[in-house]
Amino acid sequence: MKAALLKAFGTPLSIEQVDDPVLGTGEVIVDVVATRVLSYADEVFSGARNYLLNLPAIPGPGAIGRVRAFGPDATHLKQGDWVYCDPTFRSRDDARSPDITLQGWSAGGDGGLRLQKHFHHGSWAERTRVPTENAIRIGELSEADATQWCALGTLLVPYGGWLAADLKAGETVLVSGATGNFGSAAVAVALAMGAGCVIATGRNETVLADLVRRFGPRVRTQTLSGEEDIDRERMKQAAPGPIDCVFDILPPGVSPNVVRAAIMAVRPYGRVVLMGGVGMSGGPGLELAYPWIMRNCITIRGVFMYPPDAAIRLAGLVRAGLLSLDQFETTIFDLDRANEAVTHAASHGGPFKMTVLRP
Rank of each mutant, 00 (worst) to 15 (best):
Ala338Gly: 04
Val32Cys: 12
Arg137Ile: 11
Thr206Pro: 01
Val157Ala: 01
Thr132Tyr: 02
Val212Ser: 10
Thr221Lys: 02
Arg358Ile: 11
Glu27Ile: 12
Cys197His: 09
Leu211Gln: 05
Ile298Glu: 00
Lys117Gln: 15
Thr223Arg: 15
Leu113Glu: 15
Asp31Ala: 15
Ala8Ser: 12
Val303Cys: 02
Asp42Tyr: 08
Asn339Gly: 06
Thr221Tyr: 01
Thr343Tyr: 03
Leu314Lys: 06
Val207Phe: 05
Val44Ser: 00
His118Met: 09
Pro291Ala: 08
Val67Ala: 03
Val157Phe: 01
Gly71Glu: 11
Val266Met: 06
Leu23Trp: 05
Ser281Trp: 12
Gly71His: 14
Asp99Val: 07
Thr154Pro: 00
Gly111Asn: 07
Arg137Cys: 12
Tyr84Leu: 15
Asn181Leu: 14
Ile64Tyr: 07
Asp73Ser: 13
Pro252Lys: 08
Ala178Val: 10
Thr206Asp: 13
Glu171Asp: 02
Leu53Cys: 01
Ala178His: 07
Met1His: 08
Val356Asp: 00
Gly170Leu: 09
Arg295Ala: 05
Ala95Tyr: 02
Glu227Ile: 15
Ala239Leu: 07
Gln148Lys: 14
Phe333Val: 06
Gly276Phe: 08
His76Trp: 07
Phe247Pro: 00
Ala144Asn: 11
Leu23Glu: 11
Pro98Ile: 15
Asp248Gln: 12
Ala95Leu: 14
Gly170Gln: 09
Asn134Ile: 13
Ile263Ala: 03
Met193Pro: 03
Asp81Leu: 07
Arg36Ser: 14
Glu340Cys: 06
Leu191Thr: 09
Gly71Met: 12
Ser184Ile: 11
Leu156Ala: 06
Arg68Gln: 14
Pro98Val: 15
Arg129Gln: 10
Ala195Gln: 08
Glu171Gly: 01
Thr343Ala: 15
His120Tyr: 05
Pro242His: 05
